[in-house]
């Protein structure tokens, strides 16, 4: 335990599968009321981390505390305080949306109003439809509804919007904004950088079982990664240069070349560019390390 204001506190978390390292010393905290995103490519360790915190997996070493309790020993009372939206499941779905939510609401001491939750996830018209008959995106909304029905203090969202169309994703963001306003702390994993940028207060980029960077969305990758890039063609060769003063560089180019530079672009790296750079750099590091060890 580090800080009484932390809902999640993880120190040097490690996980080995057989001889393979899944997590290689992950450390982070999530403060109460905060939305924290774990970003990373497939197999980076996002799901392993979240499943350890949900109590589904045991860690190999390190410390983990979720709502003040070791998730490996989380009992019924602890489970009543968290909400879990797993990666997609394939349940048979022989009950209706309303039946399922009514039944699950009964597990919790202070559940949300069922109709309110059905409206919140936009399934009013499907409330009396069997879950098995819903589309993939609609079933995902049922998963989210089941995750929040118990009024959790901490909500785990493992790739919640995979398979959503852009409109459904926007609606989902609105729902999460509502939960945040309600004071719910959220741990989110996602592939979608725009999703993390919209929802998360802070994010960590994880790759190869290690956190390669962490901070607010505007800090990730560092100031240097956000320096604009100017690209142009010099005859047949493509040139690019990073500069804090792109306008000055462009003006300079124009003078030097005696006219309009060919194929001119001024680019401010998006979160996606920064993320790809981070993941690429950590991969290159890993390769260098492997080569050095070989």
């Amino acid at each position: 335990m580090t800080n009484s204001d932390s809902v999640v506190s993880v120190t040097d978390l490690r996980k080995n599968y057989g001889g393979v390292t899944g997590l290689d010393g992950v450390t982070f905290d999530i403060r109460r009321g905060e939305t924290f995103a774990l970003l990373g490519p497939n197999g980076a360790g996002k799901s392993t981390t979240i499943e350890i915190l949900e109590g589904y997996r045991d860690r190999t070493s390190g410390d983990a505390s979720v709502l003040g309790i070791d998730p490996q020993r989380g009992g019924i009372d602890w489970k009543a305080r968290i909400g879990i939206v797993l990666q997609s499941t394939g349940e048979s779905g022989n009950v209706t949306v309303q039946e399922q939510l009514t039944h699950f609401a009964g597990y919790y001491p202070n559940p949300r109003d069922i109709n309110e939750v059905i409206d919140a996830v936009g399934l009013r018209e499907k409330a009396k439809t069997r879950i098995g008959k819903l589309s993939g995106g609609q079933r995902r909304r049922v998963d989210v509804a089941l995750g929040i029905i118990g009024r959790p203090e901490l909500l785990f969202l493992d790739e919640p919007t995979t398979g959503f169309d852009p409109e459904a994703r926007r609606q989902f963001w609105t729902l999460i904004d509502g939960l945040k306003a309600d004071g719910t702390s959220i741990l989110l994993t996602t592939h979608y950088l725009d999703e993390a940028a919209h929802l998360a207060d802070r994010a960590a980029v994880i790759n190869g079982g290690r956190i390669v960077d962490m901070g607010t969305i505007s800090e990730i990758g560092g100031a240097e990664a956000r320096v604009p890039v100017v690209r142009w063609n010099d005859g047949s060769t493509k040139r690019e240069q990073r500069t804090h003063e792109p306008a000055a560089l462009v003006a300079h180019l124009r003078t030097d070349l005696g006219g309009e530079p060919d194929g001119l672009e001024v680019i401010r790296p998006s979160l996606e560019d920064i993320y790809l750079n981070l993941v690429g750099a950590s991969r290159a590091d890993a390769l260098t390390t492997e080569a050095a060890l070989a």
């Binding site: 202070n110 309110e116 409206d119 919140a120 936009g122 203090e153 904004d177 509502g178 306003a181 719910t184």
Partner: peptide
Amino acid sequence: MTTLTTTNGTTG
């Protein structure tokens, strides 16, 4: 989707 109201919440 609509947002959830914060009535009778005991979150946190």
